[in-house]
Amino acid sequence: MSDALVVRNLRKEFGAVTAVNDISLDVKKGELFGLLGPNGSGKTTMIKLLTGQLGMTSGDAHVMGIDVQKDSIKVRELVGIIPEQETPPSFLTAEEYLEFVARIRKLDKIKERCDKWFKLLDFEDQKNALCKDLSRGTRQKLMFAQAFLHEPRFAFIDEPLINLDPIIQRKVKDFLKGYVKKGNTIFFSTHVLEIAEEICTNVAIIHNGKLLHSGPISSLKKKRQHLEEFFLRLVKDA
């Protein structure tokens, strides 16, 4: 499998604080790659850097062969992103928001695409409510839908399950597993280890902006080690 994401010596400083410290990693096509770490470890900053939402201090990153620093718009055209904070525009309805995103992405068959997601994530009854009046969970569903509306080959998703009920969580997990089986790639950030253990093929663990571990989840299973134990030990020793 070829690389969907190549990161070399990535560094991000905010004044005196180093949020991401010299990280290198590779993600192959078809992987469901989990980026794990405690709160404030640099996961969200990583996603913002890898999708060109933030400028890097040094290092480089290529997504699907495209240099993020040189053409971040192209990267965001190709990939789907679920941001950490669900911030759809307040005064658009859920349906209008998806239509708005579809038009930004110059998609066809807008209605069909939107309806598919309303049905899949079970929020058809909310499609005419204003985004500001939606519950956090429904807003999360909406952000999920906008990220996959254009059926991207690569998606960056930041804590996508946190506000969802168990029924929708199951649907989303099944969707993600099926999605990578088709050869697509997902870069998934979370601090919920059970979810990562259940669905990810590979994981990287970061703490205080530093990469502590990167490898397939199967190697942990072979050693009969639980991800939680492994994670806690790594973070404690760091």
Partner: peptide
Amino acid sequence: QYDLFVSYAFLPVS
């Protein structure tokens, strides 16, 4: 005033 660029930052928009 009703817009923050954060609402667009993850889309292919400059």
